[in-house]
Design a protein around this nucleic acid. Structure first.
Length: 873
RNA sequence: GCCGGGAUGGCGGAAUCGGUAGACGCAGCGGAUUCAAAAUCCGCCGCCGCAAGGUGUGGGGGUUCGAGUCCCCCUCCCGGCACCA
C-alpha cells in the first residue's frame, strides 16, 4: 500500500476493478427492491461543466447509497444530442453537426468515466441516432392518428435578413443576434401536441406527487393555470363593422362586466385586419405590433400601446356601444385574441385607459380604499373582490353571486356561459431547423398530410449538409424532401421541419430500460424499471421538461405503451452552479465576457472585493454579478483541471460539501484544497490503522460487552451520534452535512485516547468501518482502496449501510442550557432521566440562576426536555 | 410584468417540531516542527468592550417565556416565462 495518497493511482485501480467485475451492470432482479436512479442527461456541448459534475455526483451518491441499502440499482447515462449548438458550431467552425456531436460525446464520456460514476454504460443512448429517434417518429405517427397531434398556425420570430426563424434566445433587444435585423412576428403552420387534453389530469395528479418539492408542484400548477370564468360574447355593431358576428372574450372577473368601457383585440384579430384595410394609420400600427419577438417576458414588459379601430361592439347586458381598440399586449395565440377592459378594476386596463383617456367606471366597492370619483393613482385594492355598485340589477351582490347572476343572464340571452380555461397552451413542436428529429409526415396535393408508414421509418436525417444559418437546410435538399405519397403514390413533398428537442427528452427514461430493442419502442423491461424512483436535475427544468415528460407518460399509456402515468416518483431539483461574471464593454452595446480564471480580484483588508483586473494586461474589468455558469457569459469553471490536479474524489467531495443539493452552489476555488486535505488525512489514518493499529486488536472483541474506558466510550458515542445525524441527513438528501459528518468522525477518531491500545484499536476499527462506508458514496475510490487495506470483507460498494448502536449512544448525565428571561446564562448537568421538577429545582439552585434572578421570584419555569430550562422572573 | 425561490461571520455553509446562532470547512492570525521552505500538528477567530456584559441571522413591524425558524410589509439577488438545454 502506498504511504502517500496518490489519487490518480487509487482511482484508476478502483475503476479498473469495477470494470473488470462489471459492478454496475444490472438486469431485472425479482429478489431485490429496484431503484431506478436517473440524472438528467447532458447536451453534448463539448465538455462537462460544473453543473453536470454536480448533477451526476448527487445522483451517484444516491445510487451508491441505495445499493449499500440492498437495492437493485439502475443508473444509466445518455446524450440529449439534438439541438441548436451543433448548428451554431457548424456555422462557426465549418464542421458537420453529426461529427461535432459524436466527437463531443466521446470526449464527455471519458470525462464521466474518469469521475467514477456507478453507471451501467451498456444502456447508453444518443437521441441523434436513428435507432433512438425512429421510435420517436413511430410514436409521432400514432399520436397523429389518435388526434393528439394536429396542425395550426403558430407565431415565430422571423429574421428578414437571414430569412430564417430564430429562437427566443437569438433575439436580443428585438434584433437578430447574427444579422442585427429587426425581428418580425410571422405566422407559419406547425404541428402541435395536444397537451391541453391532459390539463386537468396533469393538474390533479400533482397532489399525489409526494416525492416532489412543493415549489415545483406549485410552479406547474400555476403554469397549467386552471381558471373558472365566463366566456362573454359582444355582438358586432352592424353600423361600424358592416357584418354580424360576435367578439368572444374570457374573463375571471365577470362581476365587473358592467364596468367594461372598451374591448381590446390583437393585431392579428379579424376585426383589426378589417379596420386596418380602410385605415392606413391603423394599418401602420398593426404593422408596428408585428415587430419584435414573441417571448412573453418581452411582451409583458414593453410599453402598452393601442389604437382605436373606429369599430364598435355591443355590451351584452346594457346594450351600450363599446369601442374596439387594437392593443399590442393582446396576443392572438392566447385565448380568443381579445379582452374586455374594465379600467376601474384591472391595473393594466387602468393604465391603458388613463393613457388614451377612455372612461373609467367603478362597479365594485372594495373592502379598503373605496373610491367614488377620483381614481388615480391606481391602488391594488381596486382589484379586490367586493360588492357591486353602479351595476343596475346586480348592485349589492358579492363576487361569486354577481358572477353567477351575470353568467346566468348571459346564458339566457345566448351571449355567453361559464367555462374553464387553462393558461397552458398546446405544445408547438415544429422547428425550422436541421439538427433535430425529422417529423415523419408527407404532404400530398390529393391526400393531404399523410404519416410515414412504419415500414419506411426511420426518416433518416441526412448527415452531409451545408449549414449557413440562412433558411432551413432540409427545405433546400430535394433529395430529402422529394418523395411519393404513401397512399396514392403521386409525387409528394416530405415535411422538412424537425421536432423540438424537448420531445426526445420526454421519453428517454423509458428507453434506457430497453435500449437494445430494435423491434419495439418499449418492452416488458420498462414495466420492471419504470417509473424512475429518483430523478435529479436542474431547477431550471421545473416546468417545461418535467411537464412534457408527465404528458408523454400519459400519452404513451393511452397508446398502450406504458403502464405508468407519472414518470418520476421522487424529484430532486439541484440548485444551479453559479459563478461571478466579468466583462468589458465593446462597441454597439456588446460585451466581451471574460472567464473568472483569467481575472484577478482585489480585496480590502476585510476580504471584500473592491475591483477586478484581467490578469494578462492588468487593466480593470467590470464585475457583472453572479450568474448561472454558461457559455454565453463565459463564467464556466472547467471541472477537468480540478480532476487532473486533485482527482475525482476531491472534486466530488468538494461539490457535495460546498452546498446542499437543492441550493445554489457558488463556485470558489478555495475550499477544494480543504477537501483534498481531508481525503489525505483519511488516507493517512486508514493507512496507519492497516499498518500499525490493527496489530493491537484483541482476539476477543470487547465492544459488545460495553466495557470501554469512559474516554473511549465518549469517543465512540460521538462517532455514533455523527452516524445517526448522517443517516437522518441522507433521508433529507442533505448531503453537505453528511460530508461534514465524515469529517467530524475523522476528527473524533484522531482524538480518541490511545492509552488502552487494544480498546483503542477496536474503537478505531469500528469507527473506520463507519467512516469508510458513509464516505463511500461521495468518494468511492479512496474508500474502495482503504476498505480492502483495512481488512474489511468484500467491496465497500456492496457493504451493508451502518446503523448507530444503541449501546454506544447511551448517556447517564446530560447538560442543559440555562436561560433567565430567555437569555443564555449558563449550563446545568442533570441525570439523563431526571424529572421536570428535579430539573427545575437544580436550575433554580444553580449559581448562574441565583446571580441573574437578582433576588426576584420566578414567575414561570419552562423546561424543554433534553435541551434547556428558561426561568422567567 | 407574471410565477417560483433565496438573503446567516472576511467566505462556503450548519442549526431536525419555535429552544445554546455560527457545527464542519475555507481564509486569516499566533505558536510548534524545519538550516529554510512546503507539508504537518496545536491554539485563536461574529461585532462592540480591558472586563463584566451588551449586541447580532437583508430592512421595518408583530406573535411568544423564547424567533434564523411563524405572521404582515419592504429591499435586493437568482431561476422560469412556452424556439437555450
Amino acid at each position: 500500500m502506498q504511504d502517500k495518497y496518490l489519487p490518480a493511482d487509487v482511482e484508476s485501480a478502483a475503476q479498473a476493478h469495477w470494470n473488470r467485475t462489471e459492478a454496475f451492470k444490472v438486469g431485472e432482479d425479482p429478489t431485490k427492491p429496484k431503484y431506478y436512479c436517473l440524472s438528467m442527461f447532458p447536451y453534448p456541448s463539448g465538455k462537462l461543466h460544473m453543473g453536470h459534475v454536480r448533477n451526476y455526483t448527487i445522483g451517484d451518491v444516491l445510487a451508491r447509497y441505495r445499493r449499500m441499502r440492498g437495492y437493485n440499482v439502475l443508473q444509466p447515462m445518455g446524450w440529449d444530442a439534438f439541438g441548436m449548438p451543433a448548428e451554431n458550431a457548424a456555422i462557426q467552425n465549418n464542421v458537420a453537426p453529426a461529427k461535432w456531436t459524436y466527437a463531443n460525446i466521446d470526449y464527455m464520456r471519458t470525462q464521466l468515466q474518469r469521475l467514477g460514476f456507478a453507471i451501467d454504460w451498456s444502456r447508453e443512448l444518443a437521441t441523434c441516432s436513428p435507432e433512438y429517434y425512429r421510435w420517436e417518429q413511430w410514436l409521432f405517427t400514432r399520436l397523429f392518428e389518435k388526434g393528439l397531434i394536429y396542425k395550426k398556425l403558430g407565431t415565430v420570430n422571423w429574421d428578414p435578413v437571414d430569412q430564417t426563424v430564430l429562437a427566443n434566445e437569438q433575439v436580443i433587444e428585438g434584433r437578430g443576434w447574427r444579422s442585427g435585423a429587426l425581428i418580425e412576428k410571422r405566422e407559419i403552420p406547425m404541428y402541435y401536441m395536444k397537451i391541453t387534453a391532459y390539463a386537468d389530469e396533469l393538474l390533479d395528479a400533482l397532489d399525489g406527487l409526494s416525492g416532489w418539492p412543493e415549489q415545483v408542484k406549485l410552479m406547474q400548477k400555476n403554469w397549467i393555470g386552471r381558471s373558472e370564468g365566463v366566456e362573454i360574447h359582444f355582438p358586432y355593431d352592424l353600423s361600424t363593422v358592416g357584418r354580424s358576428g360576435v367578439l368572444k372574450v374570457f374573463t375571471t372577473r365577470a362581476d365587473t362586466l358592467m364596468g367594461a368601457t372598451y374591448v381590446a383585440v390583437a393585431a392579428e384579430h379579424p376585426l383589426a385586419e378589417l379596420a386596418a384595410a380602410s385605415n392606413p394609420e391603423l394599418a401602420a400600427f398593426v404593422e408596428e405590433c408585428k415587430r419584435g419577438g414573441v417571448a412573453e417576458a418581452d411582451l409583458a414588459t414593453m410599453e402598452k400601446k393601442g389604437f382605436a379601430t373606429g369599430l364598435r361592439v355591443v355590451h351584452p347586458l346594457s346594450g351600450e356601444f363599446l369601442p374596439v381598440w387594437v392593443a399590442n399586449y393582446v396576443l392572438m395565440g392566447y385565448g380568443e385574441g381579445a379582452v374586455m377592459a374594465v379600467p376601474a378594476h384591472d391595473e393594466r386596463d387602468f393604465a391603458f385607459a388613463t393613457r388614451y383617456r377612455l372612461p373609467i367606471r367603478m362597479v365594485v366597492r372594495s373592502t379598503r380604499d373605496a373610491y367614488e370619483d377620483t381614481v388615480a393613482p391606481w391602488l391594488d385594492a381596486y382589484a379586490e373582490q367586493g360588492r357591486l355598485v353602479n351595476s343596475s340589477a346586480y348592485d349589492g351582490l358579492h363576487f361569486q353571486d354577481a358572477v353567477d347572476a351575470i353568467a346566468g343572464d348571459l346564458e339566457h340571452r345566448g351571449l355567453g356561459q361559464k367555462r374553464v380555461q387553462y393558461r397552458l397552451r398546446d405544445w408547438g413542436i415544429s422547428r425550422q431547423r436541421y439538427w433535430g428529429c425529422p417529423i415523419p409526415m408527407i404532404h400530398c396535393a390529393d391526400c393531404g398530410d399523410v404519416p410515414v408508414p412504419d415500414e419506411d421509418l426511420p426518416v433518416v436525417l441526412p448527415e452531409n449538409v451545408e449549414i449557413t444559418g440562412r433558411g432551413s437546410p432540409l427545405a433546400k435538399m430535394e433529395s430529402f424532401y422529394a418523395c411519393s405519397c404513401p397512399r396514392c403514390g403521386k409525387p409528394a413533398r416530405r415535411e422538412t421541419d424537425t421536432m423540438d428537442t424537448f420531445v426526445e427528452s420526454s421519453w428517454y427514461f423509458m428507453r434506457y430500460a430497453c435500449a437494445d430493442n430494435n423491434t419495439a419502442m418499449v418492452d416488458s423491461r420498462v414495466d420492471y424499471w419504470a417509473p424512475v424512483d429518483q430523478y435529479i436535475g436542474g431547477i431550471e427544468h421545473a416546468i417545461l421538461h418535467l411537464l412534457y415528460s408527465r404528458f408523454f407518460s400519459r400519452a404513451m399509456r393511452d397508446c398502450g405503451l406504458a403502464n405508468i402515468s407519472e414518470p418520476f416518483t421522487n424529484l430532486l431539483t439541484q440548485g444551479m452552479v453559479v459563478a461571478e461574471t466579468y466583462y468589458r464593454d465593446l462597441e454597439a452595446g456588446k460585451k466581451q465576457w471574460i472567464n473568472p480564471a483569467d481575472v484577478r480580484v482585489e480585496r480590502d483588508e476585510k476580504g471584500r472585493i473592491t475591483a477586478a483586473v484581467l490578469a494578462s494586461d492588468g487593466a480593470p474589468v467590470v464585475i457583472g454579478g453572479t450568474e448561472k455558469m454558461s457559455k454565453s457569459k463565459n463564467n464556466g469553471v472547467d471541472p477537468q483541471s480540478l480532476v487532473d490536479q486533485y482527482g475525482a474524489d476531491t472534486a466530488r467531495f468538494f461539490i457535495i460539501f460546498a452546498a446542499s443539493p437543492d441550493q445554489q452552489l457558488e463556485w470558489s476555488d478555495s475550499g477544494v484544497e480543504g477537501a483534498y486535505r481531508f481525503l489525505r488525512r483519511v488516507w493517512n489514518f486508514g493507512h496507519g490503522f492497516a499498518t500499525e493499529l490493527r496489530a493491537a486488536l484483541p482476539t476477543q472483541r470487547m465492544l459488545a460487552t460495553g466495557a470501554l474506558p469512559e474516554a473511549l466510550a465518549a469517543a465512540r458515542r460521538e462517532i455514533h451520534v455523527h452516524l445517526r445525524q448522517a443517516n437522518y441527513d441522507l433521508g433529507k438528501h442533505q448531503f453537505n452535512t453528511v460530508a461534514s459528518a465524515t469529517m467530524k468522525i475523522l476528527n473524533a477518531l484522531e482524538k480518541a485516547p490511545r492509552d488502552d491500545r487494544a480498546a483503542h484499536a477496536e474503537v478505531v476499527e469500528e469507527g473506520l468501518s463507519i467512516l469508510l462506508r458513509v464516505l463511500a458514496p461521495i468518494a468511492p475510490h479512496i474508500t474502495h482502496a482503504l476498505w480492502h487495506e483495512c481488512g474489511f470483507s468484500g467491496d465497500v460498494i456492496s457493504a451493508p449501510w451502518p446503523e448507530p448502536a444503541d449501546g454506544a449512544l447511551r448517556q447517564d448525565q446530560i447538560e442543559l442550557t440555562l436561560q433567565v428571561n430567555g437569555k443564555l446564562r449558563g449550563h446545568i448537568a442533570v441525570a439523563a432521566d431526571a424529572s421536570a421538577s428535579d430539573i427545575e429545582a437544580a436550575a433554580l439552585a444553580s449559581e448562574a440562576a441565583v446571580r441573574f434572578m437578582d433576588g426576584k421570584p420566578p414567575r414561570k419555569v419552562v423546561v424543554v426536555p433534553g435541551r434547556l430550562v428558561n426561568i422567567v422572573v
